[in-house]
Design a protein around this nucleic acid. Structure first.
Lengths: 107, 107
DNA sequence: CAGTATCCCATAGGATACTG
DNA sequence: CAGTATCCTATGGGATACTG
């Protein structure tokens, strides 16, 4: 057991999740998934299409989000959480608890 | 990281903790606190004095770290976790678990 | 020892316009 | 609808040198 490198997974997680939009996107998907692009754009407050596309592509590569295309006219694309993303729920839950605590602390 | 008035606790936590060095600094302090500046510089791998100072000042303002100065020659300054920072342990723990899981997933 | 003072840069993120 | 294509900016972060 190398206790010394135990902080690496934390760096790793922060690199993965620490962006401005990553967890907000995942969060709205935890409440209801899958969702269409336009719905995400509306529910993730303040995000632009460019950023949304960019983050969704990354999340796909990281196997946290899947993408399903329906060849309709006009196009329909659905984004949903993968099984792997289930593992994020405790993380989100703890971040939420801490956020609430610290917000209370600072005012 | 900027101080914003964010409603969503998750956005808030990410804004607070999402930087490159914040959690690494806190993490080494969870293992043993307080620590002197030089010790932190050594244990937080890769950090520069500039960044370390910058992050420690922010963490002080956020009441997660305290600073104690001993008027010795040469100067001694100790940094330690506050009680509030205890609330971060579950967050760190979950981030660590997720990091390990996802690292395994991706290789 | 415990920092500052500068200067610099990459890139995350944003604004706007356009398309299959 | 679901994106791209451009272009641009702010700032988080880094390198180096210096000081009370």
């Amino acid at each position: 057991m190398k206790k010394v490198e135990i902080k690496c997974p934390i760096d790793y997680s922060i690199a993965l999740l620490g962006g401005k939009w990553t967890l907000p996107i995942i969060y709205v998907l935890t409440k209801d998934s899958p969702k269409r692009f336009k719905v995400l754009e509306r529910e993730v407050n303040g995000i632009t299409p460019t950023m949304l596309t960019s983050r969704l592509r990354a999340l796909e590569e990281e196997k946290l989000v899947y993408r399903k295309i329906y060849p309709t006219i006009p196009p329909t694309v659905e984004y949903g959480l993968t099984e792997n993303a289930e593992k994020l729920k405790p993380v989100i839950n703890e971040l939420e608890k801490f956020g609430l605590f610290h917000q209370g602390l600072m005012k």
